[in-house]
Amino acid sequence: MSERSRPLSPHLLIYRFEWPMLLSITHRFTGVGLAGGAIVLVWWLIALAVGPEYFAYAQAILGSWVGRLLLLGWTWATFYHLCNGIRHLCWDGGWGFELRVARATGVLVVIMSIVLTLAAWLIAYAARGG
């Protein structure tokens, strides 16, 4: 097949590692992870629509330590993808391409994703009552 012999991009392994590379691929990874999270969100909504008994079962699974660990991951992925998405929108508008600005916004994205994750979980635990 001719399509087999075509050169393929990207050639990741020939580049020296740079942190923005990691931020970039993390946007894609979190995107895929959030697509998985969307399935869980649908399940949660359907559990809510089914009735109290099944909803309690769903809440128990999500409230277990495995469930909470996954939810923590999805919370961070949500805020990372959101913040880095805004960064991408700025680039689309032509702003922030200078190396120094791009690095600074990258750091800001990581910090904001962690801050927002902590805020959401503080609210969750406050709502739970300790």
């Binding site: 809510l48 409230g63 979980w121 709502a127 739970r128």
Partner: peptide, 28 residues
């Protein structure tokens, strides 16, 4: 869709966080 979702995701994520441990009646 991403622009639309910026406020909506913030609203939804924090609402769900507050709802997190809610029982059926509250969440519904």
């Amino acid at each position: 869709t991403s622009v639309v979702m910026v406020p909506l995701v913030l609203w939804f994520a924090f609402s769900l966080a507050a709802l997190g441990p809610a029982d059926h009646a509250t969440a519904a």
